[in-house]
Simulated scan of single mutants.
Amino acid sequence: MTDIATIMRTSAVIPVLVIDDIATAVPIAEALVAGGLRVLEVTLRTPAALDAIRAMKRVPGAIVGAGTVVNADQFAQVMDAGAEFIVSPGLTERLAEPIIDSGVPFLPGIANAADIMLGMELGLTHFKFFPAEANGGLKALKALAAPFYQCRFCPTGGITAASAPEWLAFDPVLCVGGSWVTPKGATMAEVEAIARAASGFRGS
């Protein structure tokens, strides 16, 4: 099992995926991987999410994780589905402790200094800054990152193809999360092209 830092460095952009139709899961994963985005976050926002994780894991080269994990029951469900990493919108001890104990890579959401301090008390140094734009954008993250120099971040929430390169130019940002790489109604060829453009944001 790899660690969260390695996963975050694998792709400049982590697609945040809301899968409504299980039939689209594998084609979307194949298009994203072909475009150079191997790390895929399947959010637990639809009934198809767990089956999508199982299906996408069969795509060669894909690293498939579960997002929007908010409690221990969901953690157990996504582990049963084979999730390779866990992303949560926030951070609580009750959620974090079983995930940390399991050793699975974990990227919890933080919004302020208190969240980061809680994470560090739990032994964590890699966080999702969420919701990034609503929380003050890059200016806010730069202010937060200064006293927590040992921490690294994946801003998510409101990031676009236009703003992602600026976020990625800030050294503590290892990657960004975004839903723009799979716009509604896009063909798989279009998704692959968007992914290819996004994979080059960091020269990766």
Rank of each mutant, 00 (worst) to 15 (best):
L118E: 00
V39G: 00
E133F: 13
T10N: 05
S163L: 12
A114N: 12
G61W: 06
N135C: 09
A169R: 15
F129A: 04
L44Q: 01
I28C: 10
G65A: 08
G136Y: 02
R9T: 05
G185Q: 10
F170Y: 15
P60C: 09
V78R: 08
Q77C: 07
A193L: 01
V191L: 13
C151H: 03
A31C: 03
F170A: 11
D171Y: 03
G65R: 01
G90F: 07
G103W: 06
G61Y: 03
E192P: 13
F170I: 13
A132N: 04
A55R: 00
E97G: 00
R58D: 09
T6G: 15
A145C: 06
K128D: 03
S204P: 10
R45K: 12
K142V: 12
R94S: 12
H126Q: 14
G67Q: 08
A29N: 07
I53A: 09
A34F: 09
Y149W: 08
D20Q: 09
R9E: 08
L95W: 03
S102L: 11
G61T: 12
D3T: 10
M79H: 14
D115Y: 01
G103N: 02
V173C: 00
C175L: 02
D171G: 01
P165D: 02
N112F: 14
I63C: 02
E190G: 11
A146F: 11
V78D: 04
A83I: 07
A29D: 08
E192L: 13
R38Q: 09
W167K: 03
I22G: 04
A189N: 10
R45S: 12
G178V: 02
R202K: 15
G35D: 06
A113G: 10
R196S: 14
T182N: 10
V26Y: 14
I100M: 14
F106S: 00
A113K: 08
G35T: 04
I100L: 15
A52G: 04
V87C: 02
A132M: 12
T92I: 07
L40C: 07
K139I: 10
V13H: 02
Y149L: 09
E121T: 12
A169D: 07
V33N: 10
L174Y: 02
P89D: 03
P165Y: 14
L144A: 07
A143S: 14
D115A: 00
V59D: 11
A143P: 10
T160N: 14
P47N: 13
R58P: 03
L124M: 14
G67D: 02
A5D: 13
L37P: 12
A113Q: 08
S11A: 07
T125S: 15
